[in-house]
C-alpha cells in the first residue's frame, strides 16, 4: 500500500506491505535508523516512537493506523537535552536501546517525577542488556530535569 506520514518533520511517502508494522514502514520505507527492532513483540521498547504525541511500540503498531500522522522518532530529539544527558552519564554502551530510551523520556507526562524512583517506574518497559540501567537512569533523571527547565 502507499503510505505517507510526517516523520521527524519531513513528509515521507513510500510503498509498504498492507500488514506492515510502523517500525517496518519507518525502517524500510523511510530508511529511518532511529527505530530499532529487538524483540518484535512490543516488550523491549527499542522501537519506541511518538504518533501524534503518544508513545507506541513501532514493532507491533500497524503502519496504516499511523497513516497521515505526525510521527517523532529519536531523530526528532537528536542531540537534545535528554540525549546529551544519557551520553554524559555513561548511559550509552551498545546503543541499540538508546533511541527508544530517548523517546520514552520525551513521552513522559508532567506527573512523572524526575527522580530515580520515578524514572525507574517510567522506563520499566525499556530493556537494556549492557548498562545495568545505572547510567541510563541517572542520565534520564538529569535529562528530564533539563527538558522541563526548557533547555534546548
Amino acid at each position: 500500500m502507499r503510505w505517507s506520514a510526517e516523520v521527524d518533520g519531513r513528509l515521507v511517502e513510500c510503498d509498504v506491505p498492507g500488514n506492515a508494522s510502523l517500525a517496518e514502514a519507518l525502517r524500510g520505507g523511510a530508511e529511518n535508523t532511529a527505530v530499532k527492532v529487538a524483540c518484535g513483540e512490543g516488550i523491549c521498547g527499542a522501537c519506541s516512537c511518538l504518533v501524534a504525541g503518544e508513545r507506541v511500540h513501532g514493532c507491533i503498531y500497524p503502519a496504516f493506523r499511523a497513516y497521515g500522522q505526525v510521527i517523532q522518532t529519536a531523530a526528532s530529539f537528536a542531540d537534545g537535552p535528554v540525549a546529551r544527558a544519557l551520553v554524559e552519564a555513561g548511559g550509552v554502551q551498545c546503543g541499540f536501546c538508546t533511541p527508544g530510551m530517548v523517546v520514552a523520556v520525551h513521552s513522559l507526562s508532567t506527573d512523572v517525577p524526575a527522580t530515580e524512583a520515578g524514572i525507574r517506574h517510567a522506563l520499566a518497559g525499556n530493556l537494556c542488556r549492557c548498562t545495568g540501567y545505572a547510567g541510563l537512569v541517572a542520565g534520564a533523571v538529569a535529562g528530564l530535569q533539563r527538558l522541563r527547565a526548557g533547555e534546548p
Partner: peptide
C-alpha cells in the same frame, strides 16, 4: 571522571548504523 564512548551521541540520535541497518 572519564569520557562517554566516542560514538555515544550518534547512537542516542539514531544516526549510528548497525548491521541490521545496512
Amino acid at each position: 571522571s572519564g569520557m562517554p564512548l566516542l560514538d555515544a551521541a550518534d547512537k542516542a540520535a539514531g544516526r549510528a548504523k548497525y548491521l541490521t541497518d545496512f
